Amino acid sequence: MTVLADDTALAAALAETAGRLLLALRDSALLTGKALGDAGDRTANAFLMAAIATQRPDDGVLSEESVDDRSRLAKRRVWIIDPLDGTREYAEARADWAVHVALAIDGHAAVGAVALPAQGLVLRSDAPPPSVDRPARPRLLVSRSRPAPECARVAAALDAEVVPMGSAGAKAMAVLLGQGDIYLHSGGQYQWDNAAPVAVALGAGMVAERIDGSRCIYNAADTALPDLLICPPEYHERVRAAFG
Rank of each mutant, 00 (worst) to 15 (best):
M1F: 02
T8K: 05
A9P: 02
L10G: 04
A11M: 08
A15E: 05
A18H: 05
R20Q: 15
L22R: 00
L23T: 07
R26A: 14
R26D: 06
G33S: 08
K34Y: 03
K34H: 08
A35H: 06
A39R: 04
G40W: 00
R42L: 07
A44E: 07
A46Y: 07
F47L: 11
L48Q: 08
M49Y: 14
A50M: 06
R56I: 11
D58W: 08
G60T: 01
V61N: 02
V61T: 13
L62E: 02
E65K: 08
V67H: 15
R70F: 12
S71H: 13
L73G: 09
A74S: 15
K75C: 05
V78E: 09
I80E: 09
I80C: 03
I80G: 01
I81G: 02
I81S: 12
I81M: 07
D82G: 00
P83D: 08
E89K: 07
Y90W: 11
E92G: 00
E92Q: 11
D96V: 11
H100N: 03
V101F: 09
A102G: 05
I105H: 05
H108G: 00
A109E: 04
V111F: 02
V111H: 04
V114P: 03
A115E: 06
P117G: 06
Q119C: 09
S125I: 00
P135I: 01
A136C: 03
R139Y: 06
L140W: 04
L141Y: 04
V142N: 07
V142H: 10
R144H: 10
C151P: 03
A155K: 01
A156E: 13
A157Y: 07
D159K: 15
D159R: 08
D159V: 12
V162M: 10
V162K: 10
A170W: 14
A172Y: 07
L177C: 14
Q179E: 12
I182F: 07
I182L: 14
Y183A: 01
G187K: 00
Q189N: 15
Q189T: 14
Q189F: 12
W192Y: 15
N194W: 09
N194F: 14
A195K: 01
A195M: 06
A196T: 12
A199G: 11
G205P: 02
G205E: 14
E209A: 15
I211E: 04
Y218N: 03
E237T: 06
R238I: 13
R240S: 12
A241N: 11
A242C: 06
F243A: 03
F243D: 10
